[in-house]
Amino acid sequence: MSKRVLPGFGISLGVALAYLGLIVLLPLAALAWKATGIGFEGLIRLLSAPRTLAALRLSVGGAVVAALINVVIGLLVGWVLVRYRFPGRRLFDALVDLPFALPTAVAGIALTTLYAPNGWLGQWLEPLGIKVAYTPLGVFVAMVFVGFPFVVRTLQPVLSSLELDVEEAAESLGAQRWQTFFRVILPMLAPTLLTGFALALARAVGEYGSVIFIAGNIPMHSEIAPLLIVQKLEQFDYAGAAALGVAMLSISFVLLVLVAFLQRWSHRWQERAT
């Protein structure tokens, strides 16, 4: 065995572990410990309360729908930005990251103003009977907004490295354009779309800042799960807040594992197909 040439193993790993321990692990341990404070029955009672269930359903269900919408829109926008040339393409490309860069509170009040009954978009939707601000629909809109860049940004590098000869081969073998798209291109993009879906989903499930302004926060109707945690804290119900926090963490963990599994499965399915 040769002596290590590069210095700093001990100190860099030590710093990294100490930092993670203090900033991430210790606080999470406090969360887990506090959550046990309400006991098993208390936990069941809390999680099965209609208001908790409604909030979890809106946060998880809304995030799933928003992520699905983002897969469709993200595919369209990513495709157009990579495949076509048009004036202003670079500008629009840079703009895709706006939801990452714009602070959530700013996005929240801007979306609310935009979709309020007298807002730029709200005034056109209101006569059609579509109410966005202060309804669950507003929650979806905010969730689509915050998750939007994920699908586009995951897709772009894959789209630009996609081999054109596969498409050309399909077409020269007589495939229609839509056949090429649905039978050749889409299956190749499936794992990437799943990754983008997972990232958008993970972001939207826990989203708070951009949602609370537009949601109206009506209990049982447009109240999201993170807001329930804030309310528990305001009532000094630390154990209840911790239990909800653990529930939310578990949900994101399960979703991420599920998607990782799906991804591996679609990768393998692809390899077998080719």
Partner: peptide, 30 residues
């Protein structure tokens, strides 16, 4: 595992990220 830990804060709801410090340092915290 270390890599997963580094990524962890991205998949935690911002509210939970604040909550954990209240449970650590708040009046009723550790």
């Amino acid at each position: 595992l270390l890599g997963a830990l580094i990524d962890l804060p991205f998949s935690v709801s911002p509210v939970v990220s604040g909550l954990v410090y209240v449970l650590l340092f708040g009046a009723q915290g550790w």
